[in-house]
Design a protein around this nucleic acid. Structure first.
Length: 861
DNA sequence: TGGTTCAAGATAAGG
DNA sequence: TCCTTATCTTGA
């Protein structure tokens, strides 16, 4: 597999027939993909094409005609390969645990035994095979052949699409080949080193082939060669000869802005530099075609460190007209793999990965660091070696499917999201900033008056002095609940909870609270955004590998944390707003989401999963009461239903009872203490305890579930989600009760939050696929806020897009594929739309059946 | 003395 | 001694 084809070592004279063979090859390769046949070898001999090991693939008349009339096809079936044996050319392991290969790997890795810290260098291998615990619903051992077949079937459309794409580009290649220059062959011979050369000769100056220096025909040979290669490594090369592969993973966002020189493709001891900035449009077109073909090709492993960056650079520099094509790119990123293997302490650079995930070492590092091409060479070699080691680990921990079918396909989706401009209303931001500034000044002056002297209101230590030493407000607190202390220094806390309590005795705490609220709003959500706005738009960044639970995070700016609710400023002095005539004080509202607006003729659409973690709890615990609530067709508020069950009352549930139920449910789900719950509910700890107990009696499966999570974690050292994501919790058996119980809560939390994260990531993939398949729809995914997705689209496509999105998002079977057959409870999605992020109103779908909508439906949540 | 870096505390989000 | 994040400010 992956050998360079024969003509390379001794390049023959290229004839028209050879080039036709190249076109034929594209068609045959696509057939290979179509039928899921792997390891096919094709040989070219003048006008004859031989296909070995082509299995049961049959050439249709129409496909033969594409090969050219002078081409004969000889088919020699050897062993048919069942398509179920491979997805993306990876055999799916039905064993959950390959102990031999893992242990063999660990024996070679000296770092393995220093793993007793809170954050281990390498996960501890489960003492027993996972199979023994697959009875529990969180197990991701679902991979029956029938199911994989179904998965393949659903993706046949995509293969078909790609086939057509390849065929349409044959004509483009044909035109290029006309420009053949016979003299170029000798030049090529000199430029392209032979694959039989050993490592020593590959370090010479010819190691790197610059695509711009090649003739069109020579380029054809390159593209020809890339078709057969089994494994490549790609990286972005910048003008200063640094690469995207060896920067610290934290610097990635900075790197993107720098000028990229080209994309380096390493394959079988050779490297090619594809230019990104050239004046020749046909060369750019050619690069786009060849790289796209390579990245779509499922039989080639594409190892890319920091893959999102590469996808972004390619998208921008090569002008992909059909941008969403990139959702078909399937890469392998050692940085993402490293995070899946060590979610609590992910590797922060390639150097870091090198230590734990590879045996590639020794004299390989003795290269000439002053020569950039030998640096590229070893970076690529190293990336491939690291990925190889990680592949073994991922498979032995049953993380491979998650990596292959969720995390890596998500990379292009995130790259697209990062390139989407989000429009902001600059004048509104400036107006808000001004309003907040004036009001903050007013509050600060008030605080100074109350303290009888000026102090820095932002400083916690100075607030501590004023409140406790000067005003002595802590004496009111020492009675019942005792003083809350800060976590590390045991200082008296000035947190919100404490200030709220003290506000009953003195006006200063509430002024401080109000100041903090406005200050946070101003610095983070107004001025913080203003700094990042360019040309009226803002771009956010998505980090796939930041959260141990598998959630996505957003930064610079963090749009996941923009407050939903607006803050109210009472007695606001209107005269300070520029252009306002009235000087009457009044109440104003500031909503941080208000300045995010959509483009002209566009509209935002938000799709929100309803109570996703609660539904997952129902699925995972298999609790009959919870399942009945979610499965019933009634659209009544779920918390009211829960409260009704809990209080065992037929009468109407009050709002207070509903709120209590909601709090109790989430608190108990995540293992809250009695005292904390008592504070939430403003009740005594003993009452809180009663509430917890009575809830657990009503829903015994929940307690069973939390206990199960803890037991599982103790037995195996880790817990896992719906789709097999794992988190190692070494403290679960710690002798210190505090650390142990923290790990226990983390175990429960991870099972639910992590499963929800899995499901939301799959949702993004399936929705983007569905939208891609309806090519006339122009919805662009802008945001993911854990359980909510936000798109921007032309207003006239709202209805149709809503239907597509809702259908996909409520199809649990599709979302869970190929990990599990579906969920035991239905998923419910709430759609809203509007022209500002702050004001989104419910979207009513066209009623499929009028009768179904004639029943009045109370609103949920 | 002025600038940088880092940890801690507080507060926003999501469930 | 609910969990998971990002960001900002202070103060050493």
């Amino acid at each position: 597999m992956g050998r360079w084809i024969k003509p390379l070592n001794n390049p023959p004279r290229l004839s028209e027939t050879d080039l036709l063979s190249a076109q034929a090859r594209i068609v045959l390769m696509s057939l290979e993909r179509r039928y899921g046949v792997k390891d096919s070898l094709w040989s070219f001999n003048n006008s004859e094409i031989c296909a070995y090991n082509a299995g049961n693939c049959e050439l249709q008349e129409s496909q033969c005609s594409l090969l050219g009339s002078s081409t004969k096809v000889k088919q020699e079936p050897i062993t048919p390969i069942r398509s179920s044996e491979c997805i993306n050319n990876q055999k799916i392991s039905t064993d959950n645990h390959d102990s031999y290969s893992t242990n063999a790997y660990f024996k070679e890795n000296k770092d393995y035994h220093k793993s007793q810290k809170q954050v281990m260098d390498l996960p501890v291998l489960a003492p027993t095979p996972l199979v023994s615990v697959t009875k529990h619903p969180t197990s991701a051992a679902y991979s029956s052949e029938a199911h994989i077949q179904q998965f393949l079937h659903q993706h046949v459309d995509q293969y078909e699409k790609r086939r057509q794409l390849a065929a349409s580009d044959v004509s483009c290649m044909k035109n290029l080949s006309r420009a053949t220059n016979e003299k170029s062959e000798d030049k090529l011979k000199a430029k392209i080193p032979s694959s039989s050369h050993n490592a020593k000769t590959t370090r010479d100056d010819q190691l790197l082939i610059d695509i711009t220096s090649l003739s069109p025909q020579e380029r054809e040979i390159i593209s020809f060669q890339l078709e057969t290669v089994g494994e490549v490594c790609l990286m972005v090369v910048y003008h200063d000869n640094s690469t995207s592969a060896n920067v610290s993973f934290y610097q990635l966002n900075d790197r993107f802005g720098q000028s990229a020189k080209g994309v380096l493709v390493y394959a079988e001891n050779r490297m090619m530099l594809f230019p990104l900035v050239v004046s020749d449009p046909s060369l750019i077109k050619w690069c786009r075609y060849v790289l796209n073909a390579l990245l779509c090709k499922e039989t080639t492993r594409k190892v890319v460190v920091n893959s999102k960056l590469l996808v972004k650079v390619l998208l921008q520099k090569l002008n992909f007209t059909r941008q969403s094509e990139v959702i078909l790119w399937h890469l392998e990123d050692p940085a993402v793999a490293g995070w899946l293997l060590k979610p609590d302490d992910p590797p922060c650079s390639l150097k870091n990965l090198r230590k734990t995930h590879t045996t590639f070492c020794g004299d390989n590092y003795n290269y000439d660091r002053t020569k950039s091409d030998s640096k590229f060479y070893f970076l690529a070699k190293e990336s491939l070696a690291i990925m190889e080691g990680q592949r073994i680990l991922l498979k032995s921990y049953s993380l491979w499917q998650l990596f292959l079918h969720v995390e890596m396909p998500l990379v292009p989706v995130l790259a697209l999201m990062e390139l989407q401009p989000i429009r902001v209303d600059m004048p509104m931001l400036l107006r808000y900033s001004d309003m907040l500034k004036k009001n903050l000044q007013k509050l600060e002056n008030q605080a100074h008056e109350m303290a009888a002297h000026p102090f820095s209101i932002n400083s916690t230590s100075q607030i501590r002095q004023v409140l406790y030493e000067k005003l002595g407000l802590d004496k009111h607190l020492s009675g019942g609940n005792g003083m809350i202390l800060t976590t590390s220094n045991n200082l008296k806390s000035t947190s919100e909870a404490v200030l709220v309590q003290m506000s009953a005795y003195h006006p200063l705490p509430s002024v401080i609270l109000q100041y903090r609220q406005l200050a946070k709003m101003k610095s983070t959500y107004i001025e913080g955004i203003l700094e990042l706005v360019q040309d009226g738009v803002v771009y956010t960044h998505w980090d796939q590998t930041a959260a141990a639970t598998g959630r996505l995070t957003s930064c610079s700016p963090n749009l996941q944390a923009v407050p939903k609710t607006s803050i109210v400023i009472k007695d606001f002095d209107n005269s300070i707003i520029i252009g306002q005539e009235s000087s009457e004080p009044k109440t104003v509202k500031i909503c941080a989401r208000e300045p995010y607006i959509c483009g002209e003729n566009n509209i935002f659409l938000a799709a929100d999963f309803q109570q996703i973690e609660l539904r997952l709890l129902a699925h995972l615990t298999d609790d009959i009461t919870l399942r009945t609530i979610f499965n019933s067709l009634s659209h009544f508020d779920v918390f009211i239903q829960l409260a009704a069950k809990w209080y065992a009352s037929e009468s109407e549930i009050t709002n207070l009872e509903r709120e209590q139920t909601k709090r109790v449910v989430y608190s108990i789900m995540y293992g809250v203490g009695e005292e904390r719950l008592a504070k939430y509910l403003k009740a005594t700890p003993s009452t809180a305890k009663e509430i917890i107990n009575s809830f657990l009696v009503s829903f015994p499966a929940i307690q069973h579930f939390t206990q199960w999570c803890v037991t599982f974690a103790r037995q195996h050292g880790y817990v896992e989600t719906l789709m097999g994501r794992k988190r190692w919790l070494p403290n679960i058996t710690h002798s210190a009760a505090q650390l142990r119980s923290q790990a226990e809560r983390q175990a429960v939390n991870f099972c639910l939050q992590g499963s929800a994260a899995d499901l939301c990531k799959c949702t993004m993939l399936r929705v983007e696929e569905a939208l891609y398949n309806k090519s006339h729809l122009r919805a662009r995914l802008l945001l993911q806020i854990h359980d909510e997705l936000v798109w921007e689209m032309p207003s006239d496509q709202l209805q149709e897009t809503c239907e597509v999105i809702k259908t996909v998002m409520e199809d649990a079977k599709l979302l869970c594929c190929p990990f599990l057959p579906g969920l035991k409870v239905p998923l419910s999605v709430h759609l809203t739309h509007g022209t500002s992020w702050a004001r989104l109103s419910p979207q009513m779908l066209r009623p499929p059946d009028v009768a179904a909508f004639s029943v009045s439906r109370p609103c949920s949540t």
